[in-house]
């Protein structure tokens, strides 16, 4: 899926993908290829793909910490460290790792292409 703006050749008008492919690993270890719309949150991409075990109870308000995912080190370098409320909420998880994020706070961008997000065990 890509939207093409044609007709001229300026830099802004090169092919821009509308979505990015992510890999979501559910709690049973299954890897799911998910085509995620750019601009939405990784949490929504996971839920829209029908992976219901990611509860995201608060709906993306950064209040509940039930959308916890774990990345690999390369992924962490690309999405960045959690800050503020998100870091504080993650501190409460039994499954906090150095590569933990709340998926509602990560925006899907083309830079995330191919990243693996593993859904953290339930607290």
């Amino acid at each position: 899926m890509a939207e093409r703006v044609s007709g001229t050749s300026t830099l802004a008008e090169v092919e821009r993908p509308a979505s990015t492919r992510l890999t979501i690993v559910s709690r049973d270890g299954t890897a799911h290829d998910v085509e995620a719309a750019n601009g939405e949150s990784v949490m929504l991409a996971i839920r829209n793909h029908g992976i219901d075990e990611l509860l995201a109870l608060c709906g993306g308000s950064c209040s509940c910490s039930t959308c916890h995912v774990i990345l690999d080190s390369d992924g962490m370098a690309r999405v960045g460290q959690p800050e503020g409320d998100e870091a504080d909420l993650l501190d409460g998880s039994l499954h906090r790792s150095p590569n933990s994020r709340l998926s509602c706070q990560i925006q899907v961008t083309p830079e995330l292409a191919g990243l693996r997000f593993t859904i953290a065990p339930e607290d």
Binding site: D52, E53, L55, L57, C58, G59, S61, S63, C64
Partner: peptide, 14 residues
């Protein structure tokens, strides 16, 4: 599985 309930509400007032 996927117990996505409303016991704590939803959204900004979670």
């Amino acid at each position: 599985k996927g117990v996505r309930h409303f016991g704590f509400s939803f959204g900004p007032h979670f």
